[in-house]
Amino acid sequence: MLMPSPAVLRGLVEEYETLLAEETLAGAAEPSPRLRDLGYTLCVSTGTREIRGALAAARAHLATTASAPATPAAPRSDPPADRPGPATASVIALRPGGHLATPAAEAPLAAGGAAAP
């Protein structure tokens, strides 16, 4: 499995944990969109489906790699309205075997056709 560079992975973990702590202290009822995006990115980067597993996998990977200075994740800007952005992450799922299942990929199946490769 491909893994991001240790510096990028360390930056994602640190940003996630910092933002989680800030939101917890502030008493946020729901995670912010940025926290959700970081969680999703960590899951994709580590090949996991939930944040606890992603954090554990990231820490395990970082423990086995040489030290690299943390590189903060690049700031995000909102995508143009005609291009999908982070909000589409909620509709992306993995089918058994690790294949992506998106609404576009599943539509032919619902219509009785063949799945897209």
Rank of each mutant, 00 (worst) to 15 (best):
S77M: 14
S77E: 14
S77T: 13
L100G: 01
A63K: 08
P79W: 10
A87T: 04
A81Y: 14
H99A: 13
P69H: 11
A68K: 01
P75D: 11
D78L: 15
A104K: 05
D82H: 13
P69V: 11
I92V: 15
V91W: 06
R76A: 14
S67E: 15
A101K: 04
L94E: 01
R76L: 11
A74N: 09
H99F: 11
E106M: 06
P72G: 11
P75K: 11
E106P: 00
L100N: 02
A87C: 02
A89K: 05
L62P: 03
A73N: 07
P86K: 05
D78P: 05
R83V: 15
G97I: 10
T65M: 11
A105D: 02
A107Y: 01
G85D: 08
R76P: 01
R83D: 09
R83G: 04
E106G: 03
P84R: 13
T71Q: 06
T102D: 03
A74P: 08
A107T: 07
P79I: 12
P69F: 07
A68G: 09
D82K: 03
S77P: 03
G98Y: 13
T64N: 08
I92M: 06
A107R: 10
P80V: 12
A93I: 05
D78H: 10
T102K: 00
G85S: 06
A104N: 04
P79Y: 10
A87R: 09
R95C: 10
E106W: 02
A63N: 06
P96A: 14
A93N: 03
A104S: 08
A89I: 02
R76H: 12
P79N: 13
G85K: 00
P86S: 14
L100T: 08
S90R: 12
P79M: 14
A107K: 04
A68V: 12
A74D: 14
A70F: 02
P75C: 09
T71S: 13
P72M: 11
D82L: 07
P84M: 04
L100K: 08
T88R: 11
T88W: 10
S90E: 09
A101E: 07
V91R: 05
